[in-house]
Amino acid sequence: MTTPPAAAIHLNIGFVPLIDSAPLLIAQAQGLFADAGLQVDLSREPSWAGIRDRTAFGVLDAAVMTAPMPLAAALGLGGPARPMVTGLVLSKGGNGITFSSVLGEQTQRDGLAATIAARRGAGDPPLTLGVVFGVSTHHYELRAWLRDQGVDPDTDVTLRVVAPPAMADALRAGTVDGYCVGAPWNHVGAALGAGHTVAYTAAPPPGRPEKVLAVNAAWANEHPRAHSALIKVLTTAGRWLGSEPNRRLAAEILASHDRLGVPADQLLPDLLRRDDAGNWHLDFGTAGHRPDPADAQPLIEAMRQAGQLAPEADTTSALAVWRPDLYDAAVATP
């Protein structure tokens, strides 16, 4: 006599249409969740603030978020202080900076700092650059990149928030002169003829965490085994995304209208891009899945530098969000 299988645990998981969400979308498409006793409903979310609040208050049980978001949520930045739990780093790298064709040409000739100085001298308004969200790796990466170019992100340019899928159109419409965004929206911007990608963010191992799995704290407490299974399934999907043939397949899967809704040939360049050392530009686990609090510290530092966090603010609650113990337990489970 066989024992009936335990009833599947049902959960709602949110994602934003980005290639970074691939492990989640691939796991669902391949039935990996069902195999692990999880019945998952995916919800495509149009805004980061929405995904944050819906996860914080349990409308969603979990979501793909930019790495600093759950840290900021614990600190009450931009929203109510609600703890979430991060037991898995989903992706590293993958972001890029795209400039309009005009700005791209100018900066290639004169450099960005000189271009900005010339505009100021001519009485032109400051350049406007798009980022996807205030609390995001994109915002912090763009600030660091601007500083490297001798540009002050607070006084030399205007930063503006634009949702990732709207970036390329904003560039074409001239609402922004450039932007920092994740895949595939740099390539899409270039493919639309709106501009050129001028820089890709490097992800040297161990690399800065890009997207994480953020889980509603109450759900995590109530369902430790399901949470563990969820982490394990997503590491499996991430490993599957480590090979080139699988990434080619993934492009077909991600393209569908209920997932990213972007043609596969526009997803492939970002999926297949490697850095000079041959590492994936957008990595799904080769460079590590473990949420090490040491990797959270630079993100908190970036919040301080961006003026989002007071220098003296206590960040203990934020560091407690990252749970390497949950990751370790999940991958140790047979």
Partner: peptide, 10 residues
């Protein structure tokens, strides 16, 4: 909302 939140976030 993301745009609105830049008022406090940026």
């Amino acid at each position: 909302r993301d745009t609105l939140e830049q008022l406090s976030a940026l």
